[in-house]
């Protein structure tokens, strides 16, 4: 496991260099976030969400949960630890101004796309996430989110491995199968 240890050391160095603690301006504080989540709102990092045009209210809830360890992911818990309430508000507001991510490219499986679309209606995703999937207030934008992150997140909500701020997503996913999760993610990631 030498490579893992090396990776841990690298990450430690990186975190120390970029940690928000002591950073002065908002741009300095948000720089380490964008290093993984993407400078232009579009994440190019595996299993890591694009933040572009995310609703400020949802972003605030998530960073708050990371700080309070209500949502556990070690890197994010460490990053959020030194942030004040005002930092949380400022960073969330700034995230909301990042450009919206672009849909996934490549050849499209039209039948699969349509399956996902039907599920978005049937499972009432569009009620809360809105017909354009741009979200509203505490409900996140999901349009053109990374497909791998969507699959991971939906599975985690279904198994309660990820705790939402409230239990809505666990309830919504109760009757949804893994194949449906993959179809939903496929379509959402390609939403215009």
């Amino acid at each position: 496991m030498r490579s893992a240890r090396l990776a841990a050391m690298l990450a430690a160095t990186w975190l120390t260099a970029l940690a928000p603690a002591g950073a002065e301006t908002l741009e300095e504080k948000i720089a380490p976030c964008l290093a993984c989540h993407g400078e232009n709102g579009q994440s190019e990092t595996v299993n890591t969400p694009s933040l572009g045009a995310q609703t400020a209210a949802y972003a605030l809830i998530q960073i708050y949960m990371f700080r309070e360890k209500l949502r556990t992911f070690d890197v994010m818990n460490e990053m959020a630890k030194p942030l004040t309430d005002d930092d949380l508000r400022a960073i969330s507001d700034r995230i909301a101004t990042l450009p919206a991510p672009k849909p996934a490219a490549g050849p499209v499986d039209a039948a699969r796309l349509e399956r996902g679309r039907a599920l978005l209606e049937k499972d009432r995703c569009v009620f809360c996430h809105r017909p354009d999937l741009a979200g509203a207030e505490n409900v996140p934008r999901i349009a053109a989110q990374r497909e791998d992150y969507l699959v991971k997140t939906l599975r985690e909500y279904k198994s309660s491995a990820r705790h939402g701020y409230d239990g809505t997503m666990a309830e919504v996913l109760e009757p949804i199968t893994d194949q449906e999760i993959r179809d939903l993610a496929y379509t959402i990631a390609r939403h215009k």
């Binding site: 490579s3 990776a7 841990a8 990450a11 290093a35 993984c36 990092t45 595996v46 890197v75 460490e78």
Partner: peptide, 14 residues
């Protein structure tokens, strides 16, 4: 408390 797998992924990615 960081796990090495997560670290590897994030480090590589970043």
């Amino acid at each position: 408390r960081m796990t090495s797998l997560r670290t590897l992924l994030l480090t590589s990615a970043c």
